[in-house]
Design a protein around this nucleic acid. Structure first.
Lengths: 304, 304
DNA sequence: CGGGCTCATGAAAGTAAGTTTCATCCGTGG
DNA sequence: CCACGGATGAAACTTACTTTCATGAGCCCG
């Protein structure tokens, strides 16, 4: 009953391929042919059926099975999935993505997508890393205790401001968003101690936002700003400064990365506020979700 | 005419799991049980035999096969090796961040921030991975050649629609965004061949968006939809389907991750369109940037 | 030089896995 | 109430995988 060696490959966390090529010389000729195919292109081998692989190696299925056993596998299917896993792992992302740089003129869409996504994801991650939880906490405190929350933002930041307003509203906080300076100033004039004014400005230089926060602060409201530039003019009129970390300098991509970063911060604040009063917030969310249900098609799953 | 848009599963470099969770709602109950097992632990699923998996999902082998086909695989073995590859690739962050899960009740803000950022960044990355450049290209073509572009989106998706409109407008494309159904329908009725109608709906079940696209399509316009669920009702009225890959199921975080994913896709399309006519787009961008300069404090530099 | 040995090998039999077919069941809308 | 269409699993079927076994090549020793 003296059978094949069967070198344990189960303790081969990283290198099945290495393992195989290591004991390649100890294999029989026919098995070596199989081994060489496998080592040459693991991913391809994983795709083949045993018969297919046997044919490619100019041998029989039996030999392939023997090969499997020789390298420590139970059988062909096991080898197959191990190979697939192995092959997948060694797909390095060495592709030098342009970090924060411009899209090269000749780029095709696949490249464009990769570059944009990379930068966008990066902006979100880096923003989170540099966000000061202590400041967030203070802002959350202010919002939770506020009688009223006014939110301002012009242009692209206006979307974010509006989003924030909608979120707070959905969990029952009294929040307003003003798209234009005049109504914003009017509203700010009516703020008082205990109220909160939040300004959003990517550059931190939007005069409208500065003016409104100034007004709000003069009335005794707590002022908060969300900007990418921690020393911009707007930070001078803010009690609390929250910053995003988008590197994007050009308007090339319409400042989407900074928008995403802003939305992420807003989301953090929102969840922070909601977490303060979980049951009530949950109930409010459910109620609002219910309200739009009639505009949905089908209650369960969709289509066939 | 009843052309159903193809759900590109063959093209799908990195996100089989994401792809599956996107399709989850469109699957039959028994298939959903299988899908859930697979998504929960791909590596484990890859190890199982079809009979084994069927038993675990309390169903028959036939259903597992149906599931394979539903997600675009040829059969079970193919699914298996793809799963193995997938599982191997995702080098899980050692830090046990809640992926797509809920924020634990006792969480402090630092945790909340980390969790949210992780999920948000993930949504962006995974969306990019599963985006089909070919479809994007077609959409870009349509936009570039369009006489007029109408964009629709309700609720949260409305922000994205509006953002898209603004972006296109800034580079000189004639684009409109309609916040309410009635004006949208009116506008859609005036579309014709060569025009483009773009609908944005996270769930894909927003009846307003479906109606509007239906109308637009009937008038001969090219219809495009951006959704998280590739087999939702809205995809039936779309010539081109673009999908996001946000796993977020609860409304806990106000669907921010899906919003970010949508914005990323919009950004890709925008850059794609702009890249078609670089000089003109650049000039347009500069002109619009100039237009808001007077609302900025300081002429150029900030900080000290 | 040849008998008996080992070992590699593939043909073929055998078993298990995967796939297809089909009858049944269930809910839906006329 | 019936017709219909979709979902589902049992079973037939096909393909893939595994085992068995006979063959034959090399090879050592008589």
């Amino acid at each position: 009953m003296a059978k094949s060696p069967k070198i344990s490959a189960s303790h081969e966390p990283g290198g099945l391929i290495v393992h195989i090529s290591g004991l390649l010389p100890s294999l029989s000729p026919a098995e070596q042919r199989v081994a060489r195919l496998v080592v040459a292109d693991p991913a391809d081998a994983a795709r083949r059926t045993i018969t297919d692989l046997a044919t490619a190696a100019e041998t029989s299925e039996a030999t392939v099975i023997r090969f499997c056993r020789s390298v420590g596998m139970d059988g062909y299917p096991q080898l197959r999935i191990r190979l697939a896993a192995e092959a997948a792992r060694r797909v390095e992302p060495p592709d030098a993505r342009v970090v924060g740089g411009d899209i090269p003129p000749g780029a095709d869409l696949a490249q464009i997508i990769a570059t944009i996504a990379f930068n966008d994801a990066r902006a979100v991650e880096e923003t989170a890393e540099q966000l000061d939880p202590a400041v967030c906490e203070q802002v959350v405190d202010a919002i939770v205790g506020a009688g009223r929350i006014d939110i301002y933002g012009a242009g692209a930041s206006g979307f974010v401001a509006s989003d924030f307003q909608q979120k707070l509203h959905r969990i029952g906080r009294t929040a307003f968003y003003f798209p234009d300076v005049h109504t914003a100033l009017t509203s700010a004039a009516l703020l008082g101690r205990g109220d909160v004014a939040i300004g959003i400005s990517h550059t931190g230089t939007t005069s409208d936002v500065v003016e409104v926060l100034e007004q709000a602060r003069a009335r005794g409201a707590t002022t908060v700003v969300l900007t990418n530039f921690p020393r911009s003019p707007v930070t001078e009129v803010a009690d609390h400064v929250l910053t995003t970390a988008a590197r994007e300098t050009t308007y090339r991509s319409g400042a989407t990365a900074s928008r995403l970063a802003q939305l992420t911060v807003v989301d953090c604040l929102f969840v922070g506020v909601a977490a303060r009063n979980r049951p009530r917030a949950r109930k409010a969310l459910e109620a609002t979700a219910e309200a739009v249900r009639s505009h949905r098609i089908g209650s369960g799953r969709r289509r066939a």
